[in-house]
Design a binder for these strands. Structure first.
Length: 289
DNA sequence: CCACAGGACGGCT
DNA sequence: AGCCGTCCTGTG
């Protein structure tokens, strides 16, 4: 969307890219494997590739990256072809709350993450804290993922479904996954059998996709919505966790509104932009409430 | 020692 | 359909 990407030696340089801030995008709670900070840049794993992003003076630099990596992997993953300025304009129009929330972090982008990784990551997120979620996922990747070299360092990909499906529950519990351990193994086995893609879920339609994901053990409405939103399947998915419930009850609905009723309200109010609205509200609430 | 953290599940009414 | 106790682990 109006940006320009050029190969410069062994790196890709991107200029003119609006509404992208690496800190808020990678720290807003939608992903768990990116490491770094705003000044030194972030490093993460996308499928079987290690990606590094540096930001200086509004220009984004991807070291050790080819143009085909950028076009075939990064572009889609970072949702670079979506016009976030117009999304924010639509959300903030006649809505001072959304105006304030989107002004707080206008550079958040909803990542289009690999489906199985997203599903398992949010099963692990249930009744858990972000630092703990990150540690558990990292242990799983180190134990069950594939080793990759990048810039003289070793990284690990997220485990394949067949590998986690064959794991022993005691070994997963050793990763400190607790009661979620059997959910991970059973879900991996079912996912392996289903053999579905993000596109398959999108084709089902939102309601059917929700039902489909909620067959997996450890997947309730919230985890299903997170999976649909953060894998890029549906932008209308509106995950309601305790923070979103808190901010919604503060600004939009009555106190003690049920999770289901909050979902219904969001569906009617935000429509196809529910996922974006949720992220702005969530990040705002977590940072300010 | 206890409360709680970015829920899901199962048993109950 | 809605309510509520329970569940792993880490932190304060």
């Amino acid at each position: 969307m109006g940006f320009d990407a050029v190969q410069s030696g062994a790196e890709i340089r991107v200029s003119g890219l609006k509404n992208f801030d690496i800190y808020s995008t990678f720290e807003c709670g939608q992903c768990f494997r990116w490491r770094g900070n705003a000044e030194d840049g972030y490093t993460g794993i996308v499928g079987k590739k290690v990606i590094r992003i540096n930001e200086t003076d509004g220009e984004f630099i991807f070291p050790g990256c080819t143009m085909s990596d950028f076009n075939d992997v990064i572009r889609n993953y970072l949702d670079l072809d979506t016009d976030y300025a117009s999304i924010i304009a639509r959300l903030a129009n006649n809505d001072p709350v959304m105006k304030k929330a989107s002004d707080f972090a206008p550079g958040i982008r909803i990542l289009r993450q690999p489906l199985f990784e997203t599903l398992v990551s949010f099963i692990i997120s249930a009744n858990n804290s972000i630092p703990n979620i990150k540690k558990i996922i990292e242990r799983l990747c180190t134990a069950y993922g594939d080793s990759m070299k990048f810039m003289e360092s070793e990284y690990f990909s997220f485990p394949e479904p067949k590998v986690l499906a064959a794991a022993e529950e005691t070994d997963i519990r050793d990763m400190k996954a607790g009661f979620r351990s059997r959910y991970i193994i059973k879900t991996a086995a079912m996912f392996l059998e289903d053999s579905i893609t993000t596109g398959d879920l999108t084709s089902m339609g939102y309601e059917n996709a929700l039902e489909f994901l909620m067959r997996y053990p450890g997947v309730g409405r919230k985890v299903a919505d997170c999976t649909l939103l953060f894998s890029g399947a549906f932008t209308n998915a509106f995950p309601v966790d305790t923070w979103v419930k808190k901010v919604m009850e503060e600004f939009y609905v009555a106190k003690d509104t049920s999770l289901k009723d909050i979902s219904k309200f969001a569906e009617g109010k935000f429509r196809d932009l529910g996922g974006y609205a949720q992220q702005y509200l969530f990040y705002y609430a977590r940072s300010n409430m």
